[in-house]
């Protein structure tokens, strides 16, 4: 059963059409890697999935709930979809621990002890339990991104969206973030990952998609995608990136 379904999703920014009818679906537990040149609409697309951007035409159904102007639906979807950003977007005025417990306390209405326990568990999972009382500004980029992943996981989401999680990082830090993501993928989390890390795609992805100029150009298994692409656009893209 597919957990995310989109039908002919279109989106404009003023005169510019960012998405030109995207139709796809994601099954539960599937890891989907979305790649494409910059400005191809891939980030816009995953931001539409948890309503950070509003699509103008078409349908997006997440876990059986359609994304419309309905207040309750938006709230429900957001608490089921976790998101990790390119620029981490940690809250700089809160400690790592507070960053992770905040939403549990205020949105999930858990009590403090419980949420702190959960936070420590997640910090151990991403490998930085010792940084709990530090402020984000005191951490390295890789550590910050891992905290961001922990923060998203604290909401116990069914789906995780990653918006170029490694592109703001130094090369030596990319690995530590990718390791966390791999571990997450193996645990059976449904993930949509926008990334340029083709190694990650090869190793973990169940499916790879290529976006170009707001359209879904190719959708394939990783083996086929890298070794035997269907469209010329994919070949060109691969030749540029590899």
């Amino acid at each position: 059963m597919s957990i995310i379904q989109t039908k002919d999703v279109k989106k404009w920014f003023g005169d510019f059409q960012a998405l030109k009818g995207i139709t796809m679906d994601v099954a539960e537990g599937e890891v989907l890697v979305v790649c494409g040149p910059s400005g191809s609409g891939k980030s816009t697309f995953i931001r539409c999935i948890n309503r950070l951007e509003q699509h103008q035409e078409g349908q997006i159904i997440v876990d059986g709930i359609e994304l419309t102007n309905d207040l309750k639906n938006i709230e429900a979807i957001r608490s089921e979809v976790g998101m990790v950003f390119q620029s981490f977007n940690l809250f700089p005025h809160l400690t790592v621990m507070q960053n992770i417990t905040l939403a549990q306390i205020w949105v999930r209405k858990k009590n403090r002890a419980e949420s702190e326990e959960k936070a420590m568990e997640l910090l151990e999972r991403v490998g930085i339990p010792e940084q709990a009382q530090k402020f984000p500004g005191q951490l390295s980029g890789g550590q910050q991104q891992r905290v961001a992943i922990a923060r998203a996981l604290a909401m116990e989401p069914k789906i995780m969206l990653f918006d170029e999680p490694t592109s703001a990082l130094d090369p030596e830090m990319i690995k530590e973030v990718l390791d966390v993501m791999k571990e997450l993928a193996k645990s059976g989390m449904t993930m949509i990952v926008v990334t340029h890390e083709m190694g990650f795609a090869k190793e973990v992805a169940d499916r790879v998609m290529l976006f170009d100029e707001g359209m879904l150009v190719e959708e394939n298994t990783p083996e086929e995608f890298f070794n035997n692409p269907k469209s010329d656009r994919t070949k060109l893209f691969l030749s540029q990136i590899l």
Partner: peptide, 18 residues
């Protein structure tokens, strides 16, 4: 989208509330 609007009760519609 039009379909969705039909079934949506107005007091939960974000645009209406806004």
């Amino acid at each position: 989208m039009k379909n969705a609007l039909k079934t949506l009760s107005f007091f939960r519609n974000v645009v209406f509330l806004k």
